[in-house]
Amino acid sequence: MLGRFDYERPTNLAEAVRLFAETPSAAILAGGTDLLVELRSGRHAPRLLVDVKRVDGLRRLDVGPRGDLTIGAAVSLNELLEHAATRWSFPGLAQAAASIATYQLRNRATVTGNLCNASPAADLAPALLVLGAAVGVAGPRGARVIPVAEFFAGVKRTTLRRGEIATEVRIPAPEPELRSAFLKQQRLRGHDLAVANVAGALAPSTGTLRLAFGSCAPTPILLAPIETKGMSAVAVGAAAAAATLAAASPISDVRASAEYRRAVLPVLVRRVVAELLGGGAT
């Protein structure tokens, strides 16, 4: 048994928000792949789990008329991966999702949950940061939208307010021919949390490159946009690597030392840049 708690499975959002907001020490259950591990360990002992998987609308996975994408809070990583539009339009996001955990866990783990867990190593975070994504939120005082860039407050902490539920992730329409990529360093090829991860998105028309990285600071970090027009891929890679290292503040943990993270982070950045820019100048 994972503890003594009540379980509710609301079917509409208002009910979910009410249950979650009214109950002190309630937790949202979506995929459960992080929450249930916390419950088993005793580190977290909520009195109520609000299962949002059957809430109306939270299973949506919609492409808007201009190509924007909305991913409901009950959408699993595998559902995202099996969604053709995601793989065509946002390959970096697909690479990030595919790098997470195992096939079985991706049938449970949700896109939104990966963000809400607020791990510094969350693989979707950099991928969504470079796409300018935002989190749709419902709460007792209404709905709002939090850019992913403002979503993380620290290790395992988000800017969600008390009683608020993340209901979806919104990815704006991609710029024309947007390229994106994701790379992750881990201890083995099998499932592992990231030692470091890097995502990039390049809009060829403007030459603007966005880079984000994770597992090397208390939160995932989005770098300031880098203008690549007229620069070689090597030069962009070097500049991006320097900017990344300047923003990184890695720690040593059981997966890797801070020194190793500092050593591989620029490697990943250069490789992502090379993948996006190819060999030559843009």
């Binding site: 994972l2 379980y7 459960g32 249930l36 789990l49 299962d51 096939y103 079985q104 049938n107 449970r108």
Partner: peptide, 15 residues
């Protein structure tokens, strides 16, 4: 579960 592989240790029976 509904045709998809899942780890039963991380699924509540009620789910």
């Amino acid at each position: 579960l509904d045709g998809k592989p899942v780890t039963a240790c991380l699924v509540l029976a009620v789910e």
